[in-house]
Design a protein around this nucleic acid. Structure first.
Lengths: 143, 143
DNA sequence: CAATAATTAACCGAAAAAGTATAGTTTAAT
DNA sequence: ATTAAACTATACTTTTTCGGTTAATTATTG
C-alpha cells in the first residue's frame, strides 16, 4: 500500500521549486544534488511531470526545469497521478476484471473501498504546494 | 499505492466465514475453491491471519479454519496489518531512515501524510466484517 | 496405525521498481 | 557555424517484491 520512491522524489522536487521565488528555473543536476536524488532517475521522473503539465522544461544551454503552474494549483493528488498513473488502493476499483471472485461487482469489500478511496482522493486534492511550501518555511525559521 | 493480491484474498476469506453461521469451520481446500483462490497460496495467507489472532486453525482430520473473533471485532485495518505488516502510504512514516532528504523529520510532506495516514487508518478501523457480511446478504437477497 | 489437514521453510519465475547508459536534439553563446 | 550545456527518447540492467509452489513435517481423529 506504499507510494513508490519516484513519487516521493517528485514531491521533493516540486516542493523545492515551490519554496523558491516564483518561476525559478534549475537544472536537473542541481536539483538532484540539492534534494539527494539520483540524477538520471530524476530526469526520468521529470518527464512524467512535464507531460502532466506540472513542470516546464527548457532545453539547451541555460536550460532546466521550472514549475508550470502556480504552487497553489498543484496538489499531492496531481503528483501521484502523474507519476503512478492512478491512485487506487484496491485493484478492482481501477479494473473490475482483475478480480477473480465472481460476484459481478456485488461486493461489500468493493463498496467499502469505493468510499475510502474517494475520501482519500479528496484529502490528497485538498493539499497543495503553496501550503506545503509555507509550512516548510516555518520549519526553517524555527531551526 | 495498491494493496496486494494476498490482502484481497484475505478480505474474501474472512468475509466468507463472517457470512456463515458463527463458528463455521472450513478446510483450506474448500474455502479456496469457494472463493477462487489458489489453495496453497490461501494456506500461506492463513498463517498470517492465524498469527494475528484473526483466524483459528484446527489440524488433523476434520481440521480447518474458523474465525477466532466475532466478525464485529475484525476490521479492514486488522486484515491489512496482518497480511502486509503495515498500512503506511509513505515509507518514511514507517521508517524514518528510509528517507534520503536530510531534513531530520522537519518535512511538510511528512506532516501532510501523517494526517492523511491517520485518517485513512481510522476509516479502515471503522469498517468491520459484521457490517460487511450484512451488506453482502442484502446483495444476495436482491439477486 | 492410517488418513487427513495444517505448518514450516525453502524455493521459483515473473513482473515491477529503481536506477543507469547511450545516442540523440535543442539552444545560447562564442 | 561550432561548441558546450542542457533536456529527450529509448533501452538496458539490477534489485526487490509479488504471487505462487514444493516437499517434508507435525498434529489430530478414528
Amino acid at each position: 500500500m506504499k507510494l513508490n520512491q519516484a513519487t516521493d522524489y517528485a514531491f521533493r522536487m516540486v516542493l523545492y521549486l515551490a519554496s523558491m521565488p516564483e518561476g525559478t528555473k534549475m537544472t536537473g543536476a542541481a536539483l538532484a544534488e540539492n534534494q539527494h536524488i539520483p540524477e538520471r532517475f530524476l530526469l526520468k521522473i521529470m518527464r512524467s511531470l512535464t507531460a502532466a503539465g506540472i513542470m516546464k522544461s527548457y532545453r539547451g544551454v541555460d536550460g532546466g526545469f521550472a514549475l508550470q503552474r502556480h504552487p497553489s494549483e498543484i496538489t499531492l493528488f496531481d503528483i501521484i497521478e502523474a507519476v503512478e498513473g492512478q491512485t487506487e488502493l484496491q485493484r478492482c476499483l481501477h479494473d473490475m476484471s482483475s478480480c477473480t471472485r465472481e460476484c459481478g461487482g456485488m461486493c461489500a469489500i468493493y463498496g467499502a473501498f469505493s468510499d475510502i478511496q474517494h475520501q482519500l482522493a479528496e484529502r490528497l486534492k485538498a493539499i497543495n504546494f503553496e501550503g506545503l511550501a509555507e509550512q516548510e518555511r516555518t520549519f526553517h525559521a524555527n531551526k
